[in-house]
Amino acid sequence: MKVIGSIDHETRCKHYHTERDRIAIKFYCCGQYYPCYQCHAEHGCGNPEVWPKSMYNQQAVLCGACGTELTIQQYLDSGSVCPSCHASFNPGCSLHAHLYFENKHAT
């Protein structure tokens, strides 16, 4: 799976590169995976749009540890752990959920 802006095999980028920064998100507007909203701003389509809640059943989150594509709802319900390989995700990503998903607000 190609992740635009990724700097390693677990989808980390120059903006977010801690041990737990290992997801990429398929942007609704262009259908491409990026590690973060900043990578999309730098390399993306220039027209950011969030996933509508009615489409939370779509696979749009990639686990960088095992390559599993999660639905948005699976990711949101994951408790920051991949349901497939049990790798930890960065719980701080929830602060940016509103940039990717409709009706998700920064906490």
Score class of each variant (00 low, 15 high):
85 C>G: 04
9 H>N: 13
11 T>D: 10
21 D>C: 02
37 Y>G: 14
47 N>R: 11
43 H>S: 13
47 N>W: 01
103 N>H: 14
38 Q>W: 12
39 C>V: 09
87 A>P: 02
18 T>P: 00
71 T>I: 10
90 N>I: 04
77 D>L: 03
53 K>D: 12
81 V>F: 14
11 T>C: 15
16 Y>T: 00
41 A>Y: 11
43 H>K: 14
1 M>C: 07
91 P>Y: 08
91 P>Q: 07
89 F>D: 01
87 A>Q: 09
10 E>Q: 12
66 C>E: 11
106 A>K: 10
1 M>T: 10
74 Q>A: 13
81 V>P: 00
70 L>A: 02
65 A>T: 10
57 N>P: 00
77 D>Y: 00
37 Y>E: 13
47 N>P: 00
89 F>E: 03
5 G>H: 11
18 T>Q: 07
40 H>D: 10
86 H>V: 02
73 Q>V: 08
25 I>R: 12
31 G>R: 11
60 A>N: 12
36 C>P: 09
37 Y>W: 13
66 C>H: 08
100 Y>Q: 04
83 P>H: 09
16 Y>D: 02
31 G>H: 11
53 K>R: 13
32 Q>L: 14
59 Q>K: 15
62 L>A: 03
83 P>A: 06
36 C>Q: 04
89 F>L: 01
103 N>W: 06
41 A>G: 09
22 R>K: 09
47 N>C: 03
70 L>Q: 06
76 L>S: 01
65 A>R: 05
94 S>N: 08
77 D>F: 01
69 E>H: 12
104 K>E: 15
1 M>D: 04
89 F>T: 01
88 S>R: 13
89 F>K: 03
21 D>T: 00
91 P>C: 08
39 C>P: 03
50 V>Q: 13
9 H>I: 09
12 R>I: 02
80 S>W: 07
32 Q>V: 09
58 Q>R: 15
3 V>H: 08
46 G>Y: 03
15 H>K: 05
24 A>H: 05
13 C>S: 13
70 L>D: 02
13 C>E: 06
44 G>L: 05
89 F>M: 03
36 C>R: 04
32 Q>I: 10
85 C>I: 05
63 C>N: 02
101 F>Y: 15
49 E>C: 07
93 C>T: 01
3 V>E: 08
40 H>W: 10
95 L>Y: 09
29 C>Y: 12
13 C>V: 02
59 Q>P: 02
65 A>Y: 10
58 Q>M: 12
55 M>N: 14
102 E>C: 10
19 E>K: 14
29 C>D: 11
28 Y>M: 08
91 P>F: 06
66 C>V: 07
38 Q>I: 15
75 Y>A: 04
102 E>G: 07
99 L>T: 04
93 C>S: 06
1 M>A: 11
41 A>R: 13
81 V>M: 10
73 Q>Y: 06
57 N>C: 08
24 A>E: 05
99 L>F: 08
16 Y>R: 01
95 L>P: 00
6 S>F: 07
98 H>S: 11
46 G>H: 06
27 F>R: 14
68 T>W: 06
16 Y>S: 00
40 H>L: 09
69 E>V: 04
68 T>A: 15
12 R>N: 04
68 T>Q: 15
29 C>G: 12
18 T>M: 04
83 P>D: 07
55 M>E: 15
99 L>D: 08
52 P>Q: 11
50 V>G: 07
72 I>M: 05
73 Q>C: 06
11 T>M: 00
46 G>R: 04
78 S>W: 02
68 T>I: 07
26 K>V: 03
31 G>E: 10
75 Y>T: 01
